[in-house]
């Protein structure tokens, strides 16, 4: 049986192996090592949740702590990428996008187009996202939809350790700017991961489960919720097909459309706010391109049009649950 490691270890291993393979790969961000300039331990944190721990000693000089200065170091990563480095900048929480968005969407994303195809910006921006940690409104958002909106960016939302490693290696080797989003709740998830280097291509959805009754498209952590729901529904005689797009940009629309053409029913599960979300994007896509296949209205299971709340009592209500997915699937299955 193949070796099992966690999502977090898979990310660390991808960074480690790529740094060993290519001297142009550098890791930078707030406390990616931790302890810089301090009298105590170096590599004290290895990232706020320890994801980059150990890289500092293995790759001297290439794991770089930054000031709390997101525009500064994210922009620096982009500038370094313009001259051939392959920086992986960690924007600790994706919510911090608010203080560096210009560098990402006006600079990195647009260089190639604005400069008539003469620029390559192979930067990776890693960030944690997602609710469930009682981290409240400024540390719990999803926001992949915002990046997905911007031409020039690629957006990756791995849902398991295998994909996390392969997609991160692809992200580092990719010649376009890539936003690589890691759900905090997945860090401890274990799965089979090859020890070798490998890539998972962008724009290729995974069909996580096959079924003929209802298509569920789910992103990131929501893939797990969808699997939980599908196992429950299976017992009730409803067979779900689960599609994990893995990247929101590019998006594997073919796999989604083919599945809906087979099942005629679609539920999209997206942890983010509902308006202008991946859920509404995919609902729109399917309504426009597979309308004749639909046997029931499309249902979206999402967070709410409200900030992510703090109290556990509220946050649990906020996050899409397996029970909500079950209810949505049943409603489209039973639709007459």
């Amino acid at each position: 049986m193949a070796r099992k490691i966690t999502y977090q270890q898979a990310i660390n291993e991808a960074l480690d192996q790529e740094m060993a393979r290519d001297q142009n790969v550098i890791v930078m961000g707030e406390d990616v090592a931790g302890g810089s300039g301090a009298p105590g331990e170096q590599d004290a944190w290895g990232g706020v949740l320890g994801v980059t721990r150990g890289l500092y000693a293995k790759h001297p000089g290439r794991v770089i702590d930054t000031p709390i200065s997101e525009s500064g170091y994210v922009g620096a990563a982009i500038g370094a990428a313009c001259c051939g480095m392959r920086p992986v900048a960690e924007l600790m929480f994706v919510d911090f996008l608010g203080v560096c968005f210009d560098q990402i969407f006006n600079q990195a994303a647009k260089f190639r187009y604005m400069f008539g195809g003469k620029a390559e910006t192979p930067v990776v921006i890693r960030a944690m996202y997602g609710a469930g940690f009682r981290a409240a409104a400024q540390h719990s958002q999803c926001l992949y939809n915002i990046f997905t909106h911007i031409p020039g960016l690629k957006v990756v939302v791995p849902s398991n350790p295998y994909d996390a490693k392969g997609l991160l290696i692809q992200s580092i080797r990719d010649n376009d700017p890539v936003i690589f989003l890691e759900h905090k709740a997945l860090y401890t998830m274990e799965g089979e991961v090859p020890e070798e280097l490998y890539t998972v291509p962008f724009g290729e959805a995974a069909v996580v489960r096959e079924g003929h009754d209802v298509t569920i498209v789910a992103f990131g952590r929501m893939v797990l919720k969808a699997q939980e729901a599908a196992a429950d529904l299976q017992k009730q005689g409803i067979h779900c097909e689960i599609i994990d797009p893995r990247t929101t940009s590019p998006l594997d629309t073919d796999t989604i459309l083919e599945s809906v053409e087979k099942t005629g029913r679609l539920v999209v599960v997206d942890e983010s706010h509902p308006r202008c979300s991946m859920a509404s994007d995919i609902a729109g896509l399917v309504a426009e391109q597979a309308f004749d296949s639909l046997k029931a209205p499309i249902r979206q299971v999402t967070g709410f049009h409200a900030p992510v709340p703090f109290s556990d009592a509220l946050e649990e209500l906020y996050i899409p649950s397996a029970a909500k997915i079950v209810a949505a699937v049943k409603s489209v299955k039973e639709y007459k």
Partner: peptide, 25 residues
Amino acid sequence: LSVGMLGANGIVGGGGPLVCGTALA
């Protein structure tokens, strides 16, 4: 970029972080 010109910039102040990157490289 072939002559080291990273671009005129429509965003006022946009270039500061970028040159930190080219200098870091």
